[in-house]
Simulated scan of single mutants.
Amino acid sequence: MAGELDLDEFALYNWRGGGGSVWFGVTAPAKGSEAKRIVSMAKGIMNEFGIDFLGGFMVQAREMTAVFDLLYDRNDPAEMAKAHACYQKLLTEFGKIGIGVYRTNIGFMDQAAALQGEVRMDVNRRIKQALDPNGIIAPGKSGIRI
């Protein structure tokens, strides 16, 4: 029933068994043409790796966030490697067209941060240095090292 919390959605994580999931999320201008391009790219890459397409959009006034869930059996090392390789290709290919992820898990932070370019990374390092000169708060988070 709407408005009531339950755990029904968690059943989706057993789509392939094993409950493995990695979310790939990107932000882009809220335009139909961008949505079509993003879905087409994501579907194509996920299909290359044999990963079922599962995704959706959250749309705001000017931007939208697309989130795609790569489901895999985390008890199967081959499936986990396939899902991670798919995620890396999604990062790379979306980065080539200037669309970076809005957040990522720790396993992909360095690769995602590198897509932002050296100028952005320099700004991030300077802010981190000013606010946390001893580097004790979340060291290395989001690819930022001082």
Rank of each mutant, 00 (worst) to 15 (best):
A2H: 13
A2E: 13
E4C: 07
E4L: 07
D6A: 01
D6Q: 01
L7T: 15
D8K: 12
E9W: 12
E9P: 06
E9C: 13
E9D: 13
F10D: 12
F10W: 10
A11Q: 12
A11Y: 06
L12K: 04
L12D: 02
L12T: 03
Y13L: 07
Y13K: 01
N14L: 05
W15L: 10
W15T: 10
G18M: 00
G18F: 00
G19H: 11
G19L: 07
G20N: 00
S21K: 12
V22R: 11
V22M: 08
W23S: 07
F24Y: 07
F24E: 01
G25R: 11
G25S: 15
V26M: 03
V26G: 02
T27S: 13
A28C: 02
A30R: 05
A30K: 04
S33Y: 09
S33D: 14
S33Q: 11
S33C: 02
E34N: 13
A35K: 15
A35W: 13
A35Y: 13
K36I: 01
S40R: 15
S40M: 12
M41T: 13
A42G: 05
K43Q: 15
K43V: 06
G44H: 07
I45G: 03
I45S: 06
M46P: 04
M46C: 07
E48L: 07
F49I: 00
F49L: 03
F49T: 02
I51D: 06
I51G: 06
F53R: 04
L54F: 11
G56N: 08
F57H: 09
M58E: 11
Q60V: 12
A61E: 09
A61H: 08
A66F: 10
V67G: 07
D69Y: 04
D69K: 09
D69M: 11
L70W: 00
L70A: 02
D73Q: 00
N75D: 14
P77T: 02
P77Y: 01
A81V: 05
A85I: 00
A85D: 09
Y87T: 02
Q88N: 15
K89F: 04
L90M: 10
T92P: 03
T92M: 06
T92L: 07
E93V: 08
I97F: 07
G98Q: 05
I99F: 05
I99W: 10
V101A: 04
V101D: 01
Y102G: 14
Y102W: 09
R103G: 15
R103K: 11
R103A: 14
T104P: 05
I106E: 15
D110M: 06
A112Y: 06
A112D: 13
A112H: 10
A112T: 06
L115R: 12
L115M: 13
Q116S: 14
Q116G: 09
G117M: 00
G117P: 02
E118P: 14
E118V: 08
R120V: 09
M121V: 05
D122I: 05
V123D: 11
V123F: 15
R125E: 03
K128A: 01
Q129W: 06
Q129I: 05
Q129F: 09
A130F: 12
L131D: 01
L131M: 12
N134K: 14
G135R: 11
G135N: 15
I137Y: 15
I137R: 10
I137G: 03
A138L: 08
A138W: 04
K141D: 06
S142H: 15
G143Y: 11
I144N: 14
I144E: 14
I144Q: 14
I144H: 13
R145F: 12
